[in-house]
Amino acid sequence: MGYQLRVLVAKPGLDGHDRGAKVVARALRDAGMEVIYTGLRQTPEQIVEAAVQEDVHAIGVSLLSGAHNVLIGKIAKILEARGITDIIIVAGGIIPDEDIEHLKNMGVAEVFGPGTDTKEIVEFISCRCEQP
């Protein structure tokens, strides 16, 4: 094997609720992935830059403040503008159903709501980011 998935867990904006982000970071790490957690208050630009620097396969974005459409949308746009196609975005937090559609249209691979089993997230990232 020797192939390790790398994930950036990110908290964009000013939202400081990071219980979920940390729990997911730990679950991914326990599942054998290399996890980098950004800490709070990162701008979308900083998050994309960190993802590129750390050479990750996925960015896990957590947001509970309601600013998801703006901030996660911006991350997706920056990735697109930089022509980066091999990093997927997955999102979690308090995100209403209709915004989920919107985020998926903007390129977010999946949105995990409250109560999601971490195994589900591990499985999703593993499947989507497996080496071809």
């Binding site: 000013l14 939202d15 208050r41 701008t43 403040s65 600013a67 703006v70 901030l71």
Partner: peptide, 11 residues
């Protein structure tokens, strides 16, 4: 403030 974008009046 640039960091306030999207957050004004939210929570």
């Amino acid at each position: 403030h640039p960091l306030a974008e999207g957050e004004v009046g939210r929570v």
